[in-house]
Design a protein around this nucleic acid. Structure first.
Length: 865
RNA sequence: GGGCGGUUAGCUCAGCUGGUAGAGCGUCUGCUUUACACGCAGAAUGUCGGGGGUUCGAGUCCCUCACCGCCCACCA
């Protein structure tokens, strides 16, 4: 074995072995349980970023449950991401000065197909590099034929229940994509703008002023609204105004939606191009007028000056016209949020258009109940409220998109106008038999298909074996930005179609940010490719970083230091293994541990191992992986390697029966540690586990360790802790004088059982490089160190004062501590009200501190003061 | 406008139900000790964002302010 661990050489090799052996496929359950996770399908938009590395959290759970003995299935796949992918491909075409319209539908479809094949493949390869143990034989793509069948079945299912309707309603329209988008796909950006005050002449005399940030829409006004409680305008309600420029008469109405204190308290109402106005218009029975073409140009033939202009130009032009006509009262600077398309960033133009909708209220109610009753749990828990807030305020879902990429809406209309949803292409109208059928040109919101993901990937609506065996899943892990877009929707679709929750636990992992705290983004140049990270530090280190930060719920600034520390950790394990394997023949069988021959150190490390086993298992159970990796790092590096391995070195070299025991214990501890670590760092653990004596063909299927409380002896733990403290004190003392001195002669006095014992003294001698075998010569120089009841006297010359200085500082610290505790104990409130145990602890602390002060004073002599 | 999260050592972050402030990295000191210099041994470093309160006792609970980030909303 080389002195350095090389992840590159190891990781690829093991991954191939695992995959070829079929370990990623579900096996017979030893526990009777199944454990299923549906992997959130990455978008086929070509970029795999550090966010995807966070899927390692799923692999941790999956590998853990596999070791627990469950029948485990992790279903992977990819999402066609209709609008996002279309945007990527359109940009590619634009670079070549082309467009989808220019190349035509057929060439476009081919381009899409090619994209699916190449990009989908790349993503899967990248996930393999991360060590993901998903069952790739069950890999799904939302555009696969079977998946399309699921989508159609869901659509028809909703349709038959009357939950889908088509209708003209106001929608968020993206003029660049020329498609409707849902509320969730609109991002609002704070923008510096202007508020224009317009005077509308009231018929019969007077004027009414309205404030607007969109004066160009006044040509589509069909009313003016005021608040019914507004005394200023009470007399005007019911009258009409004549709009400037278009010279149309529109009514003044009263509506509660109007804010009394904003602007003038009077609002121009444009039901055709504003969400609020649309609702006011519905209530007040106002006409809806459309003044925009679908590409965002003005559609107002009556006003040739404006017709065909883009919105910004139209705004400028109409302001001139209004000003000229004396209708522009004033303009104020105004900052407000403007909706943009989430995908292409174009300014959203609300307009009325005929779209397909899903009625949400009936679907939302059960989805609310399950969260309220904690059948559906969120980690961290605060996301429950977020989820509920959204579900409670949910509005109907616009599911149709006017895109060239996506699932076609499975509705065909016959010559007689019967529009019906069919699961497969019909040959005749279901209602009248007419054979002239045309399919709806629209496609579905990509999230409609995603919302079926956990069960559609298992074959639904077919009653497949997989669906029967592996559904529902147990855990969903994802990023918070798709809590509503995706998670919430899976809950109601699964409740609706399968009458069961798609998963019980939802983990919302932290979002990975750039080192400067900005969002990771390719366009900002802040993106980090996980493969580069893997190349530098190894997949195991990358995954450990994910485990450490991912489940805390906080956003994570990407920082390489921590990843690097896990790379070093892997190296540490590698070298510890090298040490233990020296002298063990290749292919040796596991050595049974003979309890009778165990030394205190052996019992101690086994006890600590048991405690760590409990810690890791509890950490995994709570979906908080930070304490698990932290605990394993601390235990194996410091307790196992620094303390235990150092303490047994003389035994190993002596080659006695004691060596056999020590080696057996050390290997047992190492082997167990590797198993506990395997879900997080699969590669190094497999590599090392294969090298040490073990049973079984892969660590992936090794049984998960269980703690053994009988091994945890609190008294022994305390004895060892004390011993290690003495070691540190001695090292400290020698550090201050002559670090090169080895095997320093020394005497020890201690009432502690372990240090009275020859074995314990041997530990001390080994770790602190002391020779405790003889008494110090009477005339030898002496230095003494005191830890609690233990005193060690070393044959060392007096130091130059540094040690005295240190002791003095310690004395001061102890005295301060005593003053603090005494103050506490003098306080009758404390002694009276604090629990007895706490008071006792303070008394013990005081006694200990006083003893320490006595010793320090004795050491320092009369000069101590 | 409403809500959520954050503010702890130079940096990045842990600190569960209130009871002597922790890790990694960095810094400093000393070590080519035969597993590992990707190492070993040791050290230093915090009015736990400000203010108020509850309590015998607050990083931890309550109120309030400030700043950073995120989400939601029919911000004309």
């Amino acid at each position: 074995m080389d002195t350095r661990y090389d992840p590159k050489a190891v990781e690829q090799r093991w991954y191939e072995v695992w995959e070829r052996a079929g370990y990623f496929k579900p096996r017979e359950s030893r526990t009777g349980n199944t454990f299923t996770i549906s992997m959130p399908p990455p978008n086929i938009t070509g970029d795999l970023h550090m966010g995807h590395a966070m899927y390692a959290l799923q692999d941790v759970l999956v590998r853990w449950h596999r070791m627990l003995g469950d029948a485990v299935l992790w279903v992977p796949g990819t999402d066609h991401a209709a609008i996002a992918t279309q945007n990527v491909l359109e940009k590619q075409l634009a670079k070549k000065h082309s467009s989808k319209e220019a190349i035509g539908r057929e060439a476009w479809d081919q381009m899409v197909q090619r994209w699916y094949e190449t990009t989908g493949h790349t993503i899967l390869k990248q996930m393999r590099r991360l060590g993901f143990s998903a069952d790739w034989s069950r890999n799904r793509f939302t555009m696969d034929r079977d998946y399309v069948a699921s989508v159609n079945a869901a659509f028809v299912g909703f349709w038959k229940a009357g939950l889908i309707y088509r209708g003209p309603r106001i929608v968020n329209w993206c003029p660049r994509d020329q498609s409707a988008i849902s509320d969730l796909e609109v991002v609002f950006v704070e923008t510096d703008d202007h508020l224009y005050y317009l005077d509308y002449p009231v018929d019969g005399g007077g004027t009414i002023s309205v404030a607007t940030s969109r004066p160009e829409t006044m040509v589509g006004d069909t009313g003016v609204a005021v608040n019914p409680k507004d005394d200023r305008y009470r007399d005007l309600v019911g009258k009409t105004v004549t709009l400037p420029i278009v010279h149309r008469r529109v009514p003044i109405v009263a509506d509660d939606a109007v804010d009394l204190v904003f602007g003038t308290g009077a609002v121009k109402v444009t039901p055709g191009h504003d969400l609020t106005d649309y609702e006011i218009g519905e209530r007040q029975k106002l006409e809806v007028r459309n003044i925009l073409h679908l590409d965002g140009r003005m559609d107002i033939p009556d006003v040739p000056e404006l017709d065909g202009l883009k919105v910004p130009q139209a705004r400028e032009r109409i302001i001139e016209m209004l000003r000229a006509g004396g209708a522009l009262q004033k303009v104020e600077p105004y900052r407000h949020s403007v909706g943009h398309c989430d995908r292409c960033n174009a300014v959203i133009e609300p307009l009325v258009s005929s779209q397909w909708w899903v009625k949400m209220k009936p679907l939302a109610l059960p989805a609310i109940a399950v969260a309220e009753q904690d059948e559906l749990r969120f980690h961290p828990t605060r996301w429950k409220e977020q989820y509920l807030r959204w579900m409670r305020n949910i509005r109907d879902w616009c599911i149709s998109r006017q895109l060239w990429l996506g699932h076609r809406i499975p509705v065909w209309t016959c010559g007689n106008g019967h529009a019906v949803a069919y699961e497969t292409e019909p040959s005749a109208c279901e209602q009248c038999g007419d054979r002239t059928l045309t399919r709806d040109p629209d496609v579905l919101d990509t999230w409609f298909s995603s919302s079926l993901w956990p069960f559609a990937t298992l074959g639904w609506p077919k009653k497949t074996e997989d669906l029967d065996r592996f559904y529902p899943t147990q855990v969903l892990d994802t990023a918070r930005d798709i809590l509503y877009l995706w998670v919430a929707r899976m809950v109601f679709t699964s409740r609706y179609f399968l009458d069961v929750l798609p998963f019980q636990d939802v983990i919302i992992h932290g979002t990975v940010l750039a080192p400067d705290g900005r969002r990771m983004s390719k366009s900002l140049g802040t993106g980090v490719d996980p493969l580069e990270v893997i190349d530098r530090y190894g997949a195991d280190a990358t995954r450990a970083w994910c485990a450490y930060f991912g489940t805390s719920g906080q956003d994570i600034r990407f920082s390489e230091e921590k990843i690097k520390s896990y790379q070093l950790f892997a190296n540490k394990l590698w070298n510890a293994t090298r040490l233990l394997l020296a002298g063990v023949p290749e292919g040796a069988r596991p050595m049974p541990i003979v309890t009778a021959t165990l030394e205190p150190a052996d019992r101690w490390i086994l006890g600590r191992l048991s405690a760590v086993t409990r810690l890791v298992t509890a950490s995994f159970s709570r979906f908080e992986f930070g304490p698990a990796i932290d605990g394993l790092y601390e235990f194996s590096w410091h307790e196992f390697a620094d303390d235990y391995l150092e303490v047994i070195k003389p035994r190993l070299q002596a080659g006695s029966a004691s060596a056999t025991t020590a080696r057996a214990v050390a290997i047992k501890v190492l082997e167990t540690t590797l198993k506990l670590l395997h879900p997080i760092m699969p590669f190094i653990t497999e590599e090392l586990w294969q090298r040490i004596p073990h049973e079984g063909e892969t660590i992936m299927l090794a049984p998960w360790p269980t703690p053994d409380a009988r091994l945890e002896d609190p008294k022994l733990l305390e004895e060892m802790s004390h011993l290690l403290e003495v070691v540190r004190a001695v090292r400290n003392l020698r550090h201050a004088s002559d670090p090169r001195a080895r095997r320093q002669p020394a005497e020890i006095q201690s009432p502690r059982p372990l240090l009275r014992d020859a074995v314990g003294r041997q530990y001390l001698a080994t770790l602190a490089q002391l020779d405790l075998n003889g008494a110090l010569a009477a005339d030898a120089p002496r230095r003494t160190v005191v830890v609690g009841e233990t005193t060690v006297t070393l044959g060392l010359p007096k130091d130059d004062g540094a040690e005295t200085h240190r002791l003095r500082a310690e004395l001061e610290k102890k005295r301060a501590e005593i003053a603090l505790i005494e103050g506490k104990l003098r306080n009758a409130d404390f002694t009276g009200k604090a629990p007895e145990a706490v008071v006792q602890r303070e008394r013990a602390r005081l006694a200990e501190a006083q003893e320490a002060v006595d010793r320090l004073q004795r050491l320092l002599g009369p000069a101590a003061g």
